[in-house]
């Protein structure tokens, strides 16, 4: 019998702790498939964040480091500068990357650190129970914006791709989603480019995933995906923002 579908080598057999309908699982798989296809698993070092993906080191089947909140790009810098021939990636959420770790991500991109960043934007602090995040869209209800995000007091969501795209060190910046098989296929192509950018030594690469949090959004998984298409994508348009590496 021919095996047509299986777990990527880059994922362990540990069952994940992610909620039903959460897109972390798909994103893990996309990243893992790319690592497999590039044949770099035994020279890859991943950096896990603080947030829902804090235990990502249990799932990615390579050397892994757990960083403090927001500092994954700094930790990745330390690893990559010591081991420039290894593949180093961070896996970060929106609170981690765009709030407490904004300094680290901006400067890693500005320096053109030759690392790959997987940015999972579900517009809330999921792990801590669904508080407002730097990417929560105007009017979106969270546990700390219960009447909906009021831009007159809470300001505007941060568009990370657009912001980092202004920096000279950014070689590949793209935003994707996983709301349909076609979108997943596009997302995988972007992730592959982001790793190829690093392998080519072209500089900083990041792929932002618009992701769902059915649990804290109070929606079914299907409703949550629809909500991404209808409410997040208009605010955070999909596409490639920077693609200037040799790998592109």
């Amino acid at each position: 019998m021919r095996k047509v579908f299986g777990r990527p080598n880059a994922l362990t057999s540990a069952p994940t702790h992610y909620c039903p309908g959460c897109t972390h699982g798909i994103i893990h798989r996309v990243v893992a498939e790319v690592i497999d296809e590039l044949g770099v698993l035994d020279r890859t070092i991943g950096i896990a964040p603080v947030g829902c993906a804090v235990l990502a080191y249990d799932y990615f089947n390579c050397d892994m480091i757990e960083a403090s909140h927001g500092r994954a790009p700094a930790v990745a810098t330390g690893v990559k500068r010591v081991l420039p021939d290894r593949v180093v990636f961070t896996y970060q959420g929106d609170g981690d990357l765009a709030s407490i770790g904004m300094g680290e991500i901006v400067h890693a991109a500005a320096r053109g650190e030759n690392i790959t960043v997987i940015f999972v934007n579900n517009t809330v602090y999921g792990m801590t129970g669904g508080q407002m995040a730097p990417t929560t869209v105007p009017g979106q209800r969270t546990t700390t914006s219960q009447s909906g995000r009021d831009i007159s007091t809470a300001g505007y969501p941060i568009k990370v791709c657009e912001l980092l795209a202004t920096l000279g060190g950014a070689a590949y910046i793209a935003r994707v989603s996983t709301t349909s098989p076609a979108n997943v296929a596009r997302a995988k192509r972007a992730v592959k480019k982001a790793f190829q950018t690093q392998l080519a030594g072209d500089g900083f690469a990041m792929v932002e995933f618009l992701s769902s949090c059915p649990t804290t959004w109070g929606m079914t998984p299907r409703e949550a995906l629809k909500w991404i298409d209808e409410h997040l994508e208009p605010y955070f348009p999909l596409g490639e923002f920077v693609s200037r590496g040799r790998a592109s």
Binding site: I65, S68, A74, V75, T77, G78, V79, V82
Partner: peptide
Amino acid sequence: NMIYGAACA
């Protein structure tokens, strides 16, 4: 935190 990363390496 870069020290942390380099020490990990």
